[in-house]
Structures are given as structure tokens and as C-alpha cells.
Amino acid sequence: MTVGLFVPCYIDQLYPKVGKDTLEILEKTGCNVVFLQDPLCCGQPMANSGYEKMTSGFEKPFLKALPEVDYLVTPSASCSYHLSHHLLKPLVSAEELAKVKELTEFLHDVAGIDKLKASFPHKVGLHLSCHGLRGLDLGTPSELKVPYYSKIEKVLSAVEGLDLVVPPKADECCGFGGSFAVFESAVSVKMGSDKMCGMAEAEVEYVAATDMSCLMHLEGVFRAGDSPMRVMHIAELLNSEE
């Protein structure tokens, strides 16, 4: 099985470790992983700011890559959501579109977690990023009356020693929201700071999520507030050996 790895722009620039961990995890599952050099960004930063039209052309490297891979995997639920629900949606067939997978989704639905060996003996609070939860159906959102399930929790069961906590309001938005974080900074930071309080109350050492963008915002709020809590992408948990 050939998997194309898409490392989104901000992960590439600011969180290269998440890219490396994702690459290694995918390799551990036995996939033939091809790092896709050409796709740089899904276009979400512009599109969510109302400038979708500026992202015309962003689709080209994805359209080129899709036929060459069995899956196109990315460690970012919001990028995956944007690709499958906006950028590529009008351009490719449903089957091609279904190749686009967020990492957790891919591990849960396709590759399985049997071959993953990880251990992280710490108390980790789960933040349920909106696009993964409500956009990609990675779990049960608190608003809906549907039987409980969580692809994220299932996948994280591969991590030995992990004390995973899902605090109340785990699926309340962290306040990142793309350019919202800057243009509505007062609400954004307030939301982040409330998330910090909720996680601190749950007495966790780390906060994990499927999206580094949420975590970048939360990390910024944690550090500004001198919180000892640190952030960790799901990929980092799945690739840790402590």
C-alpha cells in the first residue's frame, strides 16, 4: 500500500517533529510512504478568511499526487477536512476524495495499530479538535445523540502507560480558528485560556490533539500563562518510547 504523506505548511515550518513522527508511524504500519514534496498547503488559511479564490492552483499538486497513491495522509484534521470538503471536492470523484485521510482516521480505518509500539507513561488530556470531531467524525460530538465512539481513543490505546483523560468540554473549540486567532484575538485568547483552565483542573501534564494548529494556539496561551502543561500532537504520542 502506497501512502502519500502531506505535511502541511505550518507543521513543516514550525513543528517538523510532528512530520517526522508521522512519517515513522506510517512506515511502522508497513506502508510504502512517499513524502509529497509539492503540495505545500491546503488553502485553508485564505479560504477561511474569505479568499478561497486566491487558492486556485493549490489543488494542482494534490490532483497530481492522488492517482499515484492509495491514500493521501496528513497529520492535520483541519487540512484534511479542507481538502476533502472544499479544495478538492468539486474536482475529483468520491472514491478519489476518500483517499484523503487524517492520520488517526487512516490508522483506525485502514492501517490498524497492531504494529505500533509506543509508550508514554503520563497523564494526557485530550482536546477534541473541531474539524476532526465534527468535520471528519473522529468521535461523538457532545451535541449529538449517537452511540459513543472515539477513533482517537482507540488509536491511542496503542500507547502503553498512557493515562488519557477526556475532560468535560473536551470538544469545546480552543479558539484558534485560523485568522480568527489574530483578528478576533480577545475571544480567541479567552477561549484558549479557558481550555487551559479546564485541562489544569483535570491535572494533566500534556494536552494532545489531532491538530497542531489548535496546539500551537494552546501552547502560546500555556506559555504566556506560565503553565507547566505542554502540548503534544497525536503523532508524537504514537511515536514515543519512554
Binding site: I11, Q13, L14, Y15, K20, S185, A224
Partner: peptide, 18 residues
């Protein structure tokens, strides 16, 4: 007080490392 700060920028990007 600070409300939010920018992350530390790593020495190299994922692409450079790769």
C-alpha cells in the same frame, strides 16, 4: 500580562530535515 506567545522556531523545517 502576556495572553499568547509565538512558538519557538525550530532550526530546520521538516522538508529540510527530510
Amino acid at each position: 500580562r502576556k495572553g499568547r506567545v509565538f512558538p519557538e522556531v525550530p532550526k530546520e523545517s521538516f522538508r529540510q530535515w527530510y
